[in-house]
Amino acid sequence: MSDDGGFLSSQSSRELTEDDHEKLAKQTSISDFKRNKLEIDARKNWDKFYHRNKNNFFKDRNWSAEDLKMMCPDIDFEKEISYLEAGCGVGNMLFPLVAEIPNLKLFAFDFSDNAVKLLEERAKELELSVATSVVDLSIPSVSSPFEEQVDLATLIFVLSAIHPEKHQISAENVRKMIKIGGSVVVRDYGINDHAMIRFGREARISDRFYVRQDGTRAYYFDLNELSEVFEKSGFRCVRKEYLHRMTVNHQKGLKAPRIFVQARFIRES
């Protein structure tokens, strides 16, 4: 296991404790009716989330430039690069990134209208040009919503919000937005993450797929499973890892082992 920018990087997730197993055993599944309703209302629930929280919920990802350069050492970020924040939310990845790498040509989409509007407002305030679109990755599409394909895309905690049966469709849609030879960098929730263990009763939709109290959903990935999804869609995996971090709540004296998956894929066909 190696230290990687504040995270420990490895090829395996963590071993569950006896307490973890007991908590998982107490989790119960939601009804078929609620399961179907969550799928139907997925866009509405994220729209409500952004209407309620505006720009205030997620912090800007100020680690993004450093991490991208580490994940993509062969890319010359001094040159103009077309960059897409896929599932952009309010642009918590995009805005810190362009502040550090000003040569980026910016593209962004989300399936929440409210999120895209908030991003556009911030871009206007900062006098940044960003091509935007409202896109649902889980619906098959024949082409990219943008006039050109990009050199680099990121999917940061995006796929986990989509039903696992639609991950393959999502990867194929992303592929259409990236040039052959271009890259997509993915970071998302990993199997055995503390957040997965702490879900209570009537929160489990299916294996490793849960609903939060606000109706948004979260899936927890196995690293090889994530890689297979993109490889089936014409990508080659050049790096994949579990990221481990222990978060500490000093006030409550609690430690939470967080587990994420991270990978880089290059479009080959």
Rank of each mutant, 00 (worst) to 15 (best):
D3H: 08
F7E: 01
L8M: 11
E15S: 13
D20H: 01
D20Q: 05
E22K: 11
Q27R: 13
I30H: 07
D32I: 05
A42I: 06
R43E: 11
D47F: 01
F57D: 13
F57K: 12
W63D: 15
K69S: 08
F77C: 03
S82P: 01
G87R: 09
C88P: 04
G89C: 09
V90P: 01
L94Y: 05
A99K: 15
E100C: 10
N103F: 02
A108E: 01
D110V: 04
L118C: 08
L118S: 08
L119T: 01
A123L: 03
L126W: 03
P140M: 07
S141Y: 02
S141F: 09
P145M: 08
V158D: 05
V158R: 10
V158G: 10
Q168C: 05
A171I: 03
E172C: 05
N173T: 06
V174P: 02
V174S: 03
I178W: 01
I180Y: 02
G181W: 00
G181Q: 03
D188G: 09
D207E: 14
R208M: 00
Y210E: 01
R217V: 11
F221T: 03
L223D: 06
N224G: 10
N224L: 14
V229A: 01
F235H: 08
R239F: 12
Y242F: 15
L243W: 14
R245Y: 08
R245K: 15
N249R: 14
H250I: 11
K252P: 05
G253W: 12
Q262I: 06
